[in-house]
Simulated assay, not measured.
Amino acid sequence: MKRMIAFAGVLLLALAGPAAAAEIGDDGLHKEDWFSITFKDVAEDIETAADEGKRLVLIFEQRGCIYCRAMHEQILSDPEVSDFIKANFKVVQYNMFGDEEVTDLDGDVLTEKTAARKWGYVFTPTIVFLPEEAPEGVSVAEAAVATMPGAFGKWTFLNMFRWVHEKGYEGDEHFQKYHARIINELREAGRLDAE
């Protein structure tokens, strides 16, 4: 039992990484200055993203989430990752337990926490990729082209954004096969960081 507890502690420290000074908002969530602040009307946000030549991504986080902190400090702080996301996606942050008003694609007006429940999101971070055009009469969960529940390393994280950007969900190459192919290409090029 002691070994299991010690292992869990080491794993948590490894996931949390070095304690960097991350900006924390009043809601307790880590903030990126390039995240978009909107009225959280998902159809409107999809349209605004499209007008900017981007895709909409919703990211669910919660206060005190060590995986969210690791994502901000280790993944989103990497210019290769953040530059790609900023160039191609409009990111709107949601608080898994927040009370801000959200308008779902089907017209339901909810709070962030009831939206998370309705859409079935239970892990933080959860990253939700929306289609290029807002469909009518369906929820966000039904409209999402991909969902990334939980925290991952740099290449899995970045490759998911690339796969969605390339509309891999419309093709025959499943994300896992796409990711394996990219990892092999990175390995052959000598660019592979520890994943």
Rank of each mutant, 00 (worst) to 15 (best):
D45L: 07
T48R: 12
A49Y: 04
E52P: 00
G53D: 08
G53N: 02
R55L: 12
L56E: 04
I59S: 06
E61K: 12
I66D: 09
Y67R: 10
R69L: 13
M71R: 06
M71L: 13
H72P: 02
E73D: 13
E73K: 14
I75D: 00
S77D: 14
D78H: 00
E80K: 14
E80H: 09
E80S: 14
E80D: 12
I85A: 06
A87I: 12
A87K: 10
A87G: 10
N88G: 08
N88A: 09
F89G: 02
F89A: 01
F89I: 07
Q93K: 14
D99C: 00
D99T: 11
E100N: 13
V102G: 04
T103D: 00
L105Y: 03
D106Q: 08
G107E: 01
G107H: 03
D108H: 13
V109P: 02
L110C: 06
T114S: 15
A115Q: 05
A115E: 04
A116P: 03
R117S: 13
R117T: 15
W119K: 05
V122A: 10
V122L: 12
P125K: 05
P125L: 08
T126S: 09
T126K: 01
I127Y: 00
V128R: 02
V128I: 12
F129D: 03
P131L: 06
P131Q: 11
P131S: 09
A134V: 02
P135R: 12
E136L: 15
V138N: 13
E142R: 10
A143D: 04
T147E: 05
M148G: 02
A151I: 07
F152M: 06
F152Y: 12
G153P: 07
K154E: 14
R162C: 06
W163L: 04
W163E: 01
H165M: 14
K167F: 10
Y169S: 07
G171W: 00
D172F: 11
Q176C: 12
K177C: 08
Y178C: 05
H179M: 10
I182Y: 07
I183T: 13
I183G: 12
E188A: 15
A189E: 15
